[in-house]
């Protein structure tokens, strides 16, 4: 029962050599992981094939890799869409952080009896379907000349990512020890000082994860993009959706365009892994 004896007793079963059953489960896990990832892998492989090899039956698993598809894809207007996507997702993430960080700070450190209601309302804006807001957005954006502009999309995506920033950062801020804030307040530090010198450095990993999630959502958003943009501010999801109809059966090029479009997001997602669940559940699961 002593504190020293307990860990050795508990650790004993884990040190055993893996049983055949455990080994079988390991293999099963690897197989499942491979199958789950396979569509992505296959698209990436296809992007390095020639068009003939891409559409061959039986499928070619070994082939001479070529970079031609990437060259063709990038010489087309793909680059414009790629640039738009980068601008829209970073722009909207900045808007969401600029408005969301002060709000999260306020809700975390100066809670009032209304705080739960405010939080609940903030979240509710994220839960209603975008199609419910779509029609007025089309009508108004056309009227105020924001239709098919990057500014219009940044403002919109900024609003759609704001609830995520507020909820996620509030939950990270709330984890900080209150004493630190009180000490800083007594020393006469204002909001900006406390935020940039104390709060943000201490929650940097959380801030990074929040920003990455916000980038991912803007990067992948399709419903609003396809309805509110065209040639000027179209994003990659829109480009990809139009690819097949305009280009016909060019699978290798399609795969190159697809791989380039998803690679940054998958990398961002892997980087944000540790706080992913927290972000996806709005801080309910830590």
């Amino acid at each position: 029962m002593s504190a020293v004896a307990q860990p050795t007793v508990r650790r004993a079963p884990r040190r055993r050599r893996p049983t055949p059953a455990a080994l079988a489960l390991n293999v099963l896990t690897y197989v499942v992981a491979f199958i789950v990832f396979f569509p992505i892998l296959w698209a990436v492989l296809t992007s390095f094939k020639t068009e003939a090899a891409a559409a061959s039956i039986p499928p070619k698993f070994l082939f001479h890799a070529t970079l031609d598809n990437y060259r063709t894809v990038f010489s087309a207007d793909y680059f414009l869409f790629f640039r738009n996507t980068v601008i829209l997702s970073t722009g909207s993430t900045l808007v969401a952080l600029l408005l969301g960080l002060p709000a999260a700070y306020s809700l975390a450190f100066h809670p009032s009896p209304r705080t739960p209601k405010v939080l609940s309302w903030v979240l509710s804006t994220k839960m209603l379907p975008a199609v419910g807001a779509l029609i007025p957005l089309i009508v108004i954006y056309k009227r105020v000349h924001l239709f098919d502009t990057r500014l219009g999309m940044i403002l919109l995506y900024g609003a759609f990512n704001l609830p995520l920033v507020i909820w996620m950062m509030r939950s990270f801020f709330a984890d900080l020890p209150k004493e630190i804030l009180e000490a800083a307040t007594v020393d006469g530090a204002g909001f900006l000082r406390i935020m940039t010198r104390i709060v943000l450095p201490l929650t940097a990993p959380g801030l990074a994860a929040t920003a990455l999630l916000s980038l991912i959502f803007s990067w992948n958003e399709f419903l609003l993009a396809v309805n509110l943009t065209s040639a000027n501010s179209g994003t990659l999801p829109v480009f990809i959706s139009g690819f097949m109809t305009s280009e016909g059966l060019f699978w290798a090029k399609m795969s190159a365009a697809s791989s380039l479009a998803i690679a940054p997001v998958i990398l961002a997602g892997w980087l944000a892994q540790r706080s992913l669940v927290r972000g996806l559940t709005f801080g309910a699961v830590k």
């Binding site: 789950v36 999801p237 479009a261 998803i262 997602g269």
Partner: peptide
């Protein structure tokens, strides 16, 4: 295993 979640819906469908 989490990678598919980050794939944009249009790429998912096209592929």
């Amino acid at each position: 295993m989490i990678a598919p979640f980050f794939v944009m819906p249009t790429v998912n469908a096209v592929v």
